[in-house]
Amino acid sequence: MEIDKMKSLWEDMSKKVERQEILTDQLIFDMTKERYENRIRSISVPETISALICFGVIIFLISNFNLLDVWYLQLSGILTIVACLLLPILSLKSIQRMKNVPISKGTYKEALAIYAKARVKFIRLQKVSFYTSFIVLILCVISFGKIMKGIDVFTMTEKLNWLVPSGIGVLFIFSQWVLKKYKGSMDSANDLLKELEE
């Protein structure tokens, strides 16, 4: 297919599309109405579930905080609460920033630049969240162990000897895979920004 043929095929298709007029008045009304009324449902399920889990953890820790009787256990509890509060908020805000493309006022170039910059920030935050999540997981084990089973993890030196190295091993393998995935997304967002500057 030559470029000229491409253009004539496109023109031909456009003429036929314009002639057909398939949309009805009612369908257009329904599209604007349905979309508006169900806007809230477009929030993604994984993010909502993650946020609910985090808030559940916060409530559980606050209501059982008196069981954390040593300073380092209390510190673990406080850090878990702070992380569970901040991470979902930052993540949801970051996603919101990506959606805030100026749809009616901005040009295509402006919209793309805003999208690409927000995407770069989002991926950076995802990276930070990924490492923070591991720390939160460890903190959760410490706090929950004490609250639910009355165990002080720091006194179990024998188990710690193999738990810590194997945990680091799992983190290393998993992080290689995740970082590779993030690198691809980051590169494509940066390429887009470079292309816009050309």
């Binding site: 329904d30 349905e34 009324e37 993604s44 959606k99 793309l112």
Partner: peptide, 20 residues
């Protein structure tokens, strides 16, 4: 509007709202 909406929908797979 159409092009900018397409950009804002990039990478939003499975983030669908209700639809007619």
């Amino acid at each position: 509007v159409a092009l900018n909406t397409a950009i804002s929908s990039l990478k939003k797979e499975k983030r669908r709202g209700a639809r007619v």
